[in-house]
Computed example of a mutant assay.
Amino acid sequence: MTSSRTKFYLDKRRAKWSGVCAGIADYTGINVFWVRIAAVIATITFAFPWTLVAYWIAAKSFDPKPSELYGSEEDQQFWQGVRQSPHRTARDVRSRFREIDRRLADMELYYTSKNTTLSNEIESLR
Results as ranks from 00 to 15, higher is better:
residue 7 K to T: 14
residue 20 V to D: 00
residue 46 F to T: 12
residue 2 T to Y: 06
residue 114 K to Q: 10
residue 18 S to H: 07
residue 4 S to G: 01
residue 8 F to D: 07
residue 24 I to W: 03
residue 28 T to G: 07
residue 36 R to S: 03
residue 45 T to W: 12
residue 6 T to I: 15
residue 24 I to R: 02
residue 57 I to W: 03
residue 95 S to P: 02
residue 32 V to I: 13
residue 75 D to H: 02
residue 35 V to W: 04
residue 97 F to Y: 10
residue 24 I to E: 04
residue 75 D to P: 00
residue 21 C to G: 00
residue 77 Q to K: 11
residue 100 I to M: 12
residue 24 I to A: 07
residue 63 D to H: 12
residue 50 W to P: 01
residue 28 T to N: 08
residue 94 R to I: 05
residue 55 Y to K: 11
residue 16 K to I: 15
residue 71 G to E: 07
residue 5 R to P: 01
residue 13 R to L: 11
residue 81 G to R: 07
residue 28 T to Y: 12
residue 92 D to P: 00
residue 76 Q to E: 14
residue 89 T to R: 00
residue 26 D to W: 07
residue 66 P to N: 02
residue 107 M to N: 03
residue 124 S to V: 04
residue 4 S to E: 08
residue 46 F to R: 06
residue 60 K to F: 03
residue 55 Y to S: 06
residue 59 A to Y: 05
residue 17 W to K: 08
residue 50 W to G: 02
residue 107 M to A: 06
residue 120 N to T: 12
residue 15 A to I: 15
residue 49 P to Y: 15
residue 85 S to D: 15
residue 103 R to H: 14
residue 69 L to K: 01
residue 124 S to H: 08
residue 106 D to F: 09
residue 39 A to Y: 05
residue 105 A to I: 03
residue 69 L to T: 01
residue 101 D to G: 12
residue 105 A to T: 01
residue 123 E to G: 06
residue 115 N to Q: 08
residue 114 K to D: 05
residue 97 F to H: 09
residue 91 R to W: 13
residue 105 A to K: 04
residue 95 S to Q: 09
residue 91 R to F: 13
residue 24 I to K: 03
residue 121 E to G: 00
residue 98 R to F: 07
residue 17 W to S: 00
residue 80 Q to K: 13
residue 32 V to A: 15
residue 102 R to I: 09
residue 121 E to Y: 10
residue 22 A to Y: 08
residue 57 I to S: 00
residue 23 G to N: 11
residue 26 D to R: 09
residue 29 G to C: 10
residue 34 W to E: 14
residue 39 A to R: 05
residue 31 N to W: 14
residue 62 F to P: 02
residue 124 S to T: 07
residue 114 K to E: 05
residue 120 N to G: 10
residue 44 I to L: 14
residue 62 F to R: 01
residue 13 R to Q: 08
residue 4 S to L: 08
residue 105 A to D: 03
residue 71 G to V: 07
residue 45 T to Q: 05
residue 99 E to L: 15
residue 58 A to F: 05
residue 96 R to D: 03
residue 78 F to R: 05
residue 10 L to Q: 06
